[in-house]
Design a protein around this nucleic acid. Structure first.
Lengths: 151, 151
DNA sequence: ATGCAATTGTTGACAAGTCAACAAGAAAGG
DNA sequence: CCTTTCTTGTTGACTTGTCAACAATTGCAT
C-alpha cells in the first residue's frame, strides 16, 4: 500500500493551524489580541480547575509559556489563580473567561462538526479510532526519542 | 449528536505537534539544529521545484519565515536557489537535501502508516474523506474571517 | 514603450514558544 | 524533625514565527 503520509500530514497541519487561526480571530473580535484562546479552550474542559503543570500537559506547551500566559490571563480577569493553602495555584476560568471561551470555540467547533455530519455513527467511530491510533503511535515514537538511539 | 470537537481538536493538535517533534529530532540527529525539517519535507513533494511564494502556501508560513529559512538552508547546501532568467528563484533540494529529507520523514511516516494499517481500504477512505471535509470547512471559515463580520 | 498595479522577496520590530537555570514548596526517609 | 530529593513555577536568553513597510520585478493597459 502506498503511503498517504504526505497528504495526511498536510491535512492535519492545515486543520490544526486553521483551528488556531479561527480561535485567534474570534478572540481578537472580542478585544483580546494574543495566543490566549488555546489556553482558555483547554481550561474550559477542566471543570474542577487544574494546576499550571497539568495545563502544560494538556496544551503541550512549556512551563514557561504557560506561566507567562496565565499571568496575563489573570490580569485580564479571564482566569482565576486560587492559591488555596498550597502555593501551587488551582486555575479556573472566571465567569467572563468562561463566556469568552464559549464564544471563541464556537466557529471552529461548527466547522469540525459539519465535517463529520455526513458520516454515520459507525463511520465516525472508525475515523475517530484511526486518529487515536495514529496519535498514540506518534506520541510513543516522539517520546522514545531520548532513551534509545537505534538508528 | 454530542460534539466531539474537543477530543478531536486535542487529537489533531497532538498529532501535528508530534510529527513536528519527531522530524525535528531526526533532523538534529543528522546534525542540523533548527526548524528546517518542515521546509525540506515540503520541498520533497515538489519534484520540479517551487517558488518561495508557493512554498509559503504549502507550509502555511509567512513570506518572512520562508525567506530566512531558505537562506539558511541554502547556506547549508540543502537547498538550491536557481535564479534562472527571473529573479524569482526556483527552489529545489540538492542531493544532500533530498537524502536528509528522506531520513527525516521516515519515522513520522512509519507512525502514520502504522496507525492506518489495521483499517481496510474502505475504512481508510472514509476517514481520509472525513479529514478532507473538515480541513475544507476549517479552511473556508478561517479565510472568510476578513470579508464578512456577521457576528 | 511606458506607466500603474499587483506580486514577490527582504528586512525590522514584535509575539510567543523552547530550553536552561534557579527558587520555593512538597514529599519521602531516616 | 530534618535533610535530601522531586516537582513546580518563574525568569532570562534565544529561536522562529507574524505583521508591516519597503524595494524590486513582473504584467497589463493604454
Amino acid at each position: 500500500m502506498i503511503s498517504r503520509y504526505e497528504q495526511f500530514a498536510a491535512l492535519i497541519s492545515g486543520i490544526e493551524r486553521g483551528i488556531q487561526r479561527i480561535e485567534r480571530d474570534e478572540m481578537e473580535k472580542l478585544g483580546y489580541k494574543g495566543a490566549y484562546a488555546q489556553y482558555l479552550a483547554a481550561l474550559r474542559r477542566c471543570e474542577g480547575g487544574v494546576t499550571a503543570a497539568r495545563l502544560c500537559e494538556i496544551c503541550d506547551r512549556d512551563k514557561a509559556a504557560v506561566s507567562r500566559m496565565v499571568g496575563e490571563l489573570e490580569q485580564k480577569g479571564l482566569v482565576n489563580r486560587e492559591s488555596g493553602a498550597s502555593y501551587r495555584a488551582c486555575l479556573t476560568l472566571t465567569e467572563k473567561g468562561r463566556t469568552v471561551a464559549e464564544l471563541v470555540c464556537r466557529k471552529a467547533q461548527a466547522a469540525v462538526d459539519a465535517g463529520g455530519a455526513g458520516l454515520t455513527e459507525e463511520e465516525r467511530r472508525i475515523y475517530f479510532t484511526a486518529l487515536e491510533r495514529i496519535a498514540g503511535n506518534i506520541e510513543s515514537i516522539s517520546r522514545e526519542g531520548l532513551p534509545d538511539n537505534e538508528e
